[in-house]
Amino acid sequence: MSVLLSVLTVLLTIFFMECLSWFIHKYLFHGPLWFMHKSHHEQSKSFFEWNDLFAILFAGISLFLMFIDGKNFGIKFFIGVGITTYGIIYFVVHDWFVHRRFKTFKSNNSYLQAVRKAHKIHHKNMGKRNGKAFGLLFVRKKVIQ
């Protein structure tokens, strides 16, 4: 597999994972999987939440893809790399910056602050309903103003 095709596969997988994550969050996490996801909307008593099992699931999928195609470095391997890269980006932005699971990542960047504020608005609703819309439109409006 060429380097260009490998990089393109990773980038497309990251984009696909963002779209898939939005869909899963809106229709599954705030739907039939609410029993697990609600731990993310509640005041946590411990560092780990039931919601963290979703990260473990996706990590397992990416490791499986990389393992079965690791000798060939084919498309499955680079899809696994893309899923892993998305997971790292998600962890740093969502868990580390937005939710401050670690207190070390702070930024005065206006876009990042708007993302954090939009996510806090999403979390104001502690229930299953009306928590579906995260609203990147809100983020874009706040940054432009």
Rank of each mutant, 00 (worst) to 15 (best):
F97L: 11
M126E: 06
H99S: 07
N51W: 01
L12E: 08
N108C: 05
H99A: 02
I121T: 03
V92G: 04
L136C: 03
R140V: 12
S44I: 04
T85I: 11
Q145F: 06
K45D: 13
H40F: 12
I24M: 10
V143D: 09
F78I: 01
L11M: 15
K142E: 15
I88R: 02
S46Q: 15
V10L: 11
L33R: 00
F78W: 15
N51S: 08
R129V: 01
F48Y: 11
L63R: 10
V93L: 14
N51A: 11
L53R: 01
K128H: 03
K128R: 15
K124S: 01
F23W: 13
E49S: 01
H122Q: 06
L28I: 10
L65Q: 12
H123M: 07
A59E: 03
H123P: 00
K71I: 05
V7D: 05
F16I: 14
G31V: 03
F105A: 11
I61K: 13
L8D: 03
D52M: 01
W50Q: 03
L28E: 03
F78Y: 15
F16W: 11
V143W: 14
F73I: 01
T13S: 12
G131R: 07
F134E: 07
F105H: 08
G60P: 07
N108K: 12
N125P: 05
E42V: 00
G80V: 14
N130K: 13
F16P: 03
L53N: 05
Q43N: 14
I88M: 05
A118Q: 08
W50C: 04
G127K: 11
K142Y: 09
Q145Y: 02
Q145L: 03
G131F: 02
K76L: 12
S6A: 09
F47T: 06
K132I: 10
L11H: 02
V115N: 10
F64C: 12
V115L: 15
V81S: 11
Q43Y: 11
F15C: 15
M1N: 03
F73N: 00
H41C: 13
G127C: 07
L20M: 14
L28H: 08
W50T: 00
W96S: 08
V93S: 03
V139A: 02
K117D: 11
Q113M: 15
S107E: 09
K45N: 11
W22V: 12
G80T: 14
L12F: 15
L11C: 15
V3E: 02
F67P: 05
G87H: 06
T85D: 10
V10R: 12
V93C: 01
L28P: 08
I61P: 09
F35A: 00
Q43V: 12
L11F: 14
